[in-house]
Design a protein around this nucleic acid. Structure first.
Lengths: 271, 271
DNA sequence: GCCTAGGTCCCGTTA
DNA sequence: TAACGGGGCCTAGGC
């Protein structure tokens, strides 16, 4: 029910702990000196070093070094973890099909094995997404342009679903592509594909307009939009969406301690 | 020099361990009941639960639950980690600028704090990348089409750098876009942009051809290619690039133990 | 610093 | 199942 940790276990003991933890549906961390080999969509191999292996009960495997947000090697959810002792070393193998992929982590030394009973919420609602931008516009269509009237979201076309479809103040069909952040040439191309597809579904001679709603666009994207006769409306998702969690900075309780890069700035409790 | 672990430490002791570990440049894991709040490019908040927090000396912060490869919350490298005890609870705050972002993890209970001295290689060479595909073609240009002659890689155009540029057996300019895996409409659009840009840099009337080299393309992508007069050459990166690490399956040493989803298959030592 | 595109992208949704 | 597009994408390489 609580955390189980083995320090410098034998490889056999580490194996036992691993197996037991997984039967309990717990998350497992293994730290020690290991090599990592991956073969699947691509292939890689990593020489000996001390790294952190994380095994999740959903089949996820992560190998982390002391740098980067991205694991140096991994296996996605749905994989099957197997552990064994081979040649006196703990070997953790994570395998999946479709595509066929295999990750092998071979420990020559195990410093720590921990079994962590994870509970509680695992999904976050994120504010500031493209969906929030859509809602913002549906609440006030004039943000796109005066007289704009939304007709459908996710309207299907031969080129795929259009974020927002409607008509302008003169009744012309308008395709709106939404982006939560600054966009490059790809977004202009995407909008262009939708406009072209819709142009073919509409009576000959009917002009279909295209509007890219995004906080900003790069120069190249702007050129592309101009070439294709598309326009850009600068608009960002709302900063907050009702629920905020910003009630800090009250009451002391201990001097903050800076860790990591020792900044030269003076420390104080604020912010 | 080795692993340091605290079990059920007080919040103050956890704080001390954290600070000490970071001064030693070690990776830190914290497991316990916590809430997580993020505010930056977007915003989110996560209610109480038992989760694994990983703090790297390069400024990376990861909050993992028992599911998914992607952390439920995080902070990219370059952030600054600070820890403090507020209202009797351990609070880890990770902040960065450009963009301004903040991650707060507040523990109401700390089950374990570990400091892990990570060493050894942290970067992998991956085989099967787009670069390997390029090399494959440079070694044998006929793979694109008989008589194809490469002239430049990363050739600059107004629309950006072209993966591979050359001429066909009749001397016509050819733009080659490389993809390591099956591609969709976006790749067709990308190639189209390059072809169009190059057409403008070339004498009037000179036809610029476009070739998409990829293992396969989706139906929609195929249609787009056809519309734009572009072609597809089915070709994948080489399966292996000299260095292989596949010498397992020799010698027993212990019965493999299946952990995780208990598969009904009989276990044996092979593969 | 921004821009551009690749990635073992991951991930959810829909046809 | 495959395909398509979003993502706090992350990350590397240029300019």
């Amino acid at each position: 029910m609580s955390v189980t940790t083995l320090h410098r276990p034998t490889h056999r003991d580490a194996l036992s702990a691993l197996s037991a933890a997984f039967e309990r549906g717990e998350l497992v961390t293994v730290f020690g000196r290991c090599t990592v080999d991956y073969d699947g969509r691509a292939a890689s191999s990593l020489g000996p070093g001390d790294r952190l292996l994380i095994l999740k009960p959903d089949g996820t495997a992560l190998v982390h070094t002391d740098e980067q947000r991205t694991p140096v090697n991994w296996q996605p959810p749905g994989s099957e973890h197997r552990a064994a002792v081979r040649d006196g070393r703990l070997r953790v193998r994570s395998v999946r099909g479709n595509p066929d992929e295999r990750l092998d982590v071979r420990f020559e030394r195990v410093d720590q094995v921990s079994a962590l009973p994870v509970t509680g919420g695992r999904s976050v609602d994120v504010y500031g997404s493209e969906e929030d931008l859509r809602q913002e516009i549906l609440d006030d269509p004039d943000l796109v342009e005066p007289g704009f009237e939304p007709a459908a979201t996710e309207r299907q076309t031969a080129a795929g679903p259009v974020d927002l479809f409607g008509h302008d103040d003169e009744g012309r069909p308008v395709v709106v592509e939404l982006k939560r952040r600054r966009v490059g040439p790809d977004a202009a191309g995407q909008l262009g594909r939708y406009v072209e597809a819709l142009s073919r579904e509409v009576p000959d001679g009917t002009e279909v307009r295209g509007v890219l709603v995004a906080p900003s666009v790069t120069d190249r994207a702007r050129e592309l939009l101009a070439e294709k006769g598309l326009s850009h409306v600068p608009l960002a998702p709302p900063a907050e969406s009702s629920t905020a969690a910003d009630t800090a900075a009250s009451g002391d309780g201990g001097e903050p301690t800076t860790v990591g890069d020792s900044s030269s700035e003076p420390e104080d409790g604020a912010d």
